[in-house]
Design a protein around this nucleic acid. Structure first.
Length: 728
DNA sequence: ACGCCAGAAGTTTTT
DNA sequence: CTTCTGGCGT
């Protein structure tokens, strides 16, 4: 009988093509696997991890880093299924960072019980930081400021470094806020998401002994989705493999879609310069999609410049043409898709084979409504939604406070929730006292009776302090017990039970939270409350997607990376939606941004196994206003031979060259571009020199034959498009 | 201290 | 068209 953690290495090489096998068996030294979409990358990584663990290394010496928890869990299961022991570390960068910081917290200026702040908490701290810097949140939006701070951290800039390289007034102000922000985090004993990468990176940079220890512990490091690593992640990866250089990076520059959060596509493009002895293996055979889907996807991505030579090919059948659907409105788009899903039932397509992708979360709504009307069950990949609910955050605030009494953000949420007569005035006084004493709010609360101005509320505050002290006695109990007891003794459960007569779901949600803690505990019996809280804060959007539920899946294009579905709908292929543009301006944007949008579209298309449909709308509601949309430039790039154009309803034949009038775009707007010839009743024939589509209006500039230029708002310009052959 | 209403503001993508 | 905030009244 073979030992369970001794798989037969030869069996790990079955069903692999030549480059895949080369990647699996490569042992020492840097390895870059450029894995095209659908080229069996996951198979290669899992086999490679198992192969290493059964030939040159112990399972515990292998570290596999993924991008999402879902990917980590799947990979762990697949590796276990290959017969390798569970001692291997498979996790995300953030989970790895959290683990390192728990162990080496003192060197990272954190308490052992540090709290992980999520986006919501971070924003609150930013708000406090802005106020402490004596600025107004009216001029400095916490969200925007936070985005800048987060970006600086991903680039590994400390507040001081950020200040040093600030070259304008606004950056200098940001540096001040960033300084305050970081000070507040420290005061609260908290780390934000970015700290989970930044602090470990610094740790490895500054503590050579520790760095060596870790490199010896993790002799082989595998990093997936390397194209989406940022500077801090790059440093961690690099320092963990500094001497042995047993780094295996897998990824695909064409699938880099996180530039906006500091991911540097250069990390993968320059791998061979970082590691001159690197072996590079290209996986170019696609096992997932039909030829036509690949041809269409290639047409979209081909326009990008920041690429690495790679050509995807497949032995799969040619398949059906990619369908492009021309819809009048978002309602029609959604109705058409739900009708298609209903009719595909008859063809024996399972509901779980179908996915709908969109650029932004808000776009799921129209689809959800149509699916509800049609009685089609679905799941939306928005795992964090549950943990963002008010009632859930209320319970979590208490739990965080038990673990880390310095967490002022948690205290502020818990202190009068459920209402216990501690109002805004009292809280504000407590905060002032805390600031004067240089103490945390919890410490201040404990000595409330001795403080001026608390007066009548002192008794209430005292009761709250006693409640927390009592709950702290539970902190070492198993997570399920603590969660349940806290929900009960805090009074939250009683409040929700009362409210349940009107609205049951908050109560149900809290009960579900207790169940979630129980599930966690049964999977990891030794787990503490800290472990569970950490797990909940690191949950991602796709982590709750379950392909076995037999329902249609809805998700953003970002969330679909790494997944595959037989039938895919990508909606909203319009300039401004995909490619997305924040302002509505679509011309003259940053080329890098447009390339990333193109890659995003490519990622979505290449998830498809056999049936790909892309839809666009002529009109879309933007901020409540019906806006005329123009078919996406990505659709215009598709080769005619691969596409089937569909119009769901009879469309009025476009009055081919109607003059523009009363604030409407011309019907043939899709054909207007720079260089198009136009006629004006009095100015005569001219040529478009610029065409800028703004949020509400489109600006056009025309050069006329007499040499003069004139600009208009196109919606109000009396211009008519003229074909070249009409004028010779 | 708290709830309600009206007006304003703001809307990518995620660990 | 929503979601949040701030002010006012109880």
């Amino acid at each position: 009988m073979p030992a369970p953690n001794q798989p037969n290495p030869a069996s790990l090489l079955e069903n692999l093509n030549d480059p895949q096998r080369a990647a699996v068996t490569h042992s020492d030294g840097p390895l870059l696997v450029l894995a095209g979409a659908g080229s069996g990358k996951t198979r290669v990584i899992t086999r490679r991890a198992a192969y290493l663990a059964s030939t040159v290394a112990q399972p515990r010496e292998v570290l596999a880093i993924t991008f999402t928890n879902k990917a980590a869990n799947e990979m762990r299961e697949r590796i276990l299924a290959l017969g390798v022991g569970p001692e291997m570390t498979v996790c995300t960068f953030h989970a790895l960072g959290a683990r390192l910081l728990r162990i080496h917290h003192e060197r990272a200026d954190l308490p052992a019980n540090f709290t992980i702040y999520d986006t919501d908490d971070q924003r609150k701290v930013v708000k406090q930081a802005i106020e402490l810097a004596e600025l107004s949140t009216a001029n400095w939006s916490p969200a925007a400021v936070h985005a800048r701070i987060s970006r600086a951290k991903n680039d590994m800039l400390t507040p001081t470094e950020f200040e040093e390289q600030a070259d304008d007034w606004s950056d200098r102000v940001l540096a001040r806020i960033y300084t305050e922000y970081q000070r507040l985090l420290e005061q609260n004993g908290a780390a934000d998401f970015d700290d989970l990468l930044l602090k470990p990176a610094r740790l490895l940079q500054n503590h050579e002994v520790l760095r060596r220890q870790l490199e010896q512990r993790y002799r082989y490091v595998l990093i997936d989705e390397y194209q989406d690593t940022n500077q801090a992640q790059y440093v961690v990866a690099h320092l963990l493999t500094l001497e042995q250089a047993n780094i295996c990076a897998t990824g695909d520059p064409d699938q880099s879609i996180y530039g906006w959060r500091g991911a540097d596509i250069g990390n993968i493009l320059h791998f061979e310069e970082d590691y001159p002895s690197a072996t590079v293996i290209r996986l170019e055979q696609n096992y997932r999609s039909t030829q036509r889907i690949l041809a269409a996807a290639d047409a979209v991505i081909a326009a990008n410049f920041q690429r690495k030579e790679k050509s995807l090919w497949t032995e799969n059948p040619e398949g059906a043409r990619v369908r492009v659907v021309d819809c009048e409105s978002t309602t029609e788009e959604a109705e058409w898709i739900s009708a298609q899903i209903l009719s595909s039932d008859k063809q024996g397509v399972s509901r779980s084979d179908i996915a709908v992708f969109y650029r932004i979360n808000a776009m799921s709504r129209a689809i959800e409504e149509a699916l509800l009307r049609a009685g089609i069950p679905y799941q939306v990949a928005r795992g964090t939604e549950f943990y963002n609910r008010k009632e859930i955050k209320d319970v979590l605030a208490y739990l965080r406070l038990l673990i880390n009494p310095a967490d002022d953000i948690a205290l502020l949420r818990a202190i009068n929730n459920p209402p216990r007569g501690i109002g805004a005035t009292t809280v504000s006084r407590l905060r002032n006292h805390a600031a004067t004493l240089g103490a945390s709010l919890m410490e201040t609360v404990k000595q409330a009776q001795t403080l001026d101005g608390i007066g009548r509320s002192a008794a209430r505050v005292q009761e709250f302090a006693e409640l927390i002290a009592e709950l702290q006695g539970l902190a070492d109990q198993p997570p399920r017990t603590v969660v349940e007891q806290v929900a009960r003794r805090s009074g939250l459960l009683a409040e929700l039970t009362q409210e349940a007569e009107v609205n049951r779901s908050p109560l149900d949600n809290v009960n579900e939270l207790i169940n979630a803690a129980a599930d966690f505990q049964s999977e990891r019996p030794e787990a503490t409350l800290i472990d569970w809280l950490e797990y909940t804060s690191l949950l991602g959007d796709t982590d709750t997607v379950d392909s076995s539920r037999g329902v249609v899946t809805l998700m953003t294009l970002h969330a679909c990376k790494g997944l595959e579905f037989p039938v895919v709908f990508i909606i909203g292929l319009e300039d401004g939606t995909l490619p997305f543009s924040r302002t509505g301006e679509i011309n003259g944007r940053d080329d890098d941004e447009e390339e990333e949008e193109r890659r995003l579209c490519f990622v979505g298309m290449t998830r498809t196994m056999h049936t790909l449909t892309m839809t666009h709308c002529r009109y879309r509601l933007l901020r409540g206003a019906e806006t005329r949309m123009v078919k996406s430039r990505f659709l215009r790039a598709l080769p005619e031979a691969e596409v089937e154009w569909i119009s769901p309803v009879e469309q009025k034949p476009p009055s081919h060259r109607s003059a523009v009038s009363h604030g409407r775009l011309p019907d043939d707007i899709e054909l207007w571009e720079v260089g198009t010839l136009v006629r004006h009743p009095s100015r005569g024939l001219g040529q478009i020199t610029t065409l800028r589509r703004g949020h509400k209006r489109t600006h056009v500039r025309v050069a006329f034959q007499d040499g003069a230029d004139q600009s208009w708002v196109l919606e109000f310009a009396d211009l008519t498009r003229v074909d070249y052959d009409e004028v010779g």
